[in-house]
Amino acid sequence: MSYLSHQEYAKLKLQPLINELSISILSKLPSDIESFTLNWLISNQKPLLSIPEQEEFKHLKIELEKLKQGKEGEPEGISSSTSSDDDDYIEDHLIQLPSNKFRTSVSAEAYGQWNKRSDFKPRHIPKTNEQRQRIIEVIDKCFMFSSLEKIEKEVLILAFEEKRFAPGDKVIRQGDDGNELFVVDQGELSCSKVFPHETEERYLKNYTSGEAFGELALLYNVPRAASIVSVTESLCWVLDRDCFNNIVKDAARKKRETYESFLASVPLLKDIDNYEKTQMADALQTVNYVPNEYVIREGEWGDIFYLVEDGEAVATKTMKPGLPAIEVHQYGPGGYFGELALLKGAPRAANVIAKTPLKCAIMDRRAFKRLLGPLEDILKRNASEYEGYKF
């Protein structure tokens, strides 16, 4: 976990922040969102932030100040090399939710009207082996589909429709109704938007292979927030609204239900109320390890908290320099580790190694401090059972 890809970083660090901020905004409905957001970030700043988190906070603060002051020009940090995970951030701040579309969380649409859907029959578009392989390679690079199970991905592969665009083709027009999600396979497409009180489109970024766009209109049932034009000869895989709602959204719903059930079985969390468990469920992500794989290593800096969902792990520690590490603790389902490095801001003091196939629910530092902060005394007290090898 020391070296995170763009997708992992967004999944572990950026998305929980966006979810928490969105909940705060939608619960208060401030008239000045930019000022509210800036104040929210300042008030929620934690003392034990890693260097990357400090840089992230600094960057967000600068951008929000620019928005507040109404400065013109391209948003800083947005370029043709921006990842698809940044796109979610861009479009979340461009989309205007009408008052009758109030949401209690980013994913609230998945738990409301959508649950009343009729029987779903995914479309089946035959694919060649070469097309199937291209789709697999593309969606494996796309953050949006990272939590889908193998069988769900298979449904998507069959449902995707191939669409080709020539240079200059308008793929999405700002203000139009949206019924499709686009995943770029080949080529390059440009995203631009006409902002309020402006007449000219403002360039935002380019989309390339493995990036997706168009999902926000499907999530919130609002018009397209920006326009997309094909810059080169482009090939996109297009997913219809029904499949998106029933497969991609369904995965989010299943994730929440699974984690809520799991969290209810963790003794540490018995005093956490149901709302807090729901917030934790949205913040958690799943990571799998094979036997003998290191989950954390002694001496590394830690910014992840782990809850064991399934399998067993052992903690080992080097008690004396030059001697092999010895086993000092065991973990099974419901067990947890990694909390003390987050509480104390210190390097890991021991290894944790998967003993069997291991499935963990993980939470980053920000979500840990926000959601488990009230349990700090309990966590420190529990540490006494393995005093001397805190990690």
Results as ranks from 00 to 15, higher is better:
E20H: 07
L26M: 12
L29H: 14
N39T: 11
I42H: 12
I51L: 01
P52I: 00
E56G: 12
K61P: 07
Q69N: 07
G70R: 02
G70I: 00
E74K: 14
S81Y: 13
D86F: 08
D92V: 00
H93T: 14
V106E: 13
S107D: 14
A110G: 10
Y111N: 09
Y111C: 04
G112F: 05
T128Q: 11
E130D: 10
E130A: 13
E137V: 02
E137K: 15
C142A: 15
F143A: 03
F143E: 06
F145G: 04
F145S: 04
F145A: 04
E149F: 10
K150G: 10
I151E: 15
L156H: 07
A159L: 08
D169N: 09
G175A: 14
C191P: 00
H197E: 14
E198R: 15
E198I: 12
N206Y: 13
E215K: 09
N221P: 06
A225P: 02
S227L: 03
V231L: 05
L239G: 09
R241F: 05
N246S: 12
A252K: 03
A252L: 00
R253W: 09
E260G: 04
F262V: 00
L263R: 04
E276M: 11
K277W: 14
A281N: 07
Q285G: 04
Y294K: 07
G299Q: 06
D303K: 03
I304Q: 15
L307P: 02
E309A: 00
G311F: 02
A313P: 03
P324Q: 14
A325V: 03
H329A: 13
G332R: 06
F337T: 11
F337W: 11
F337N: 13
K344R: 15
G345Y: 13
A349R: 12
A349C: 09
N351V: 08
K355D: 04
P357K: 06
I362C: 15
M363A: 08
R366D: 11
K369D: 15
P374M: 02
E376F: 01
D377Q: 04
L379W: 08
K380P: 00
R381P: 00
A383T: 12
S384E: 11
Y389F: 05
Y389E: 08
K390N: 07
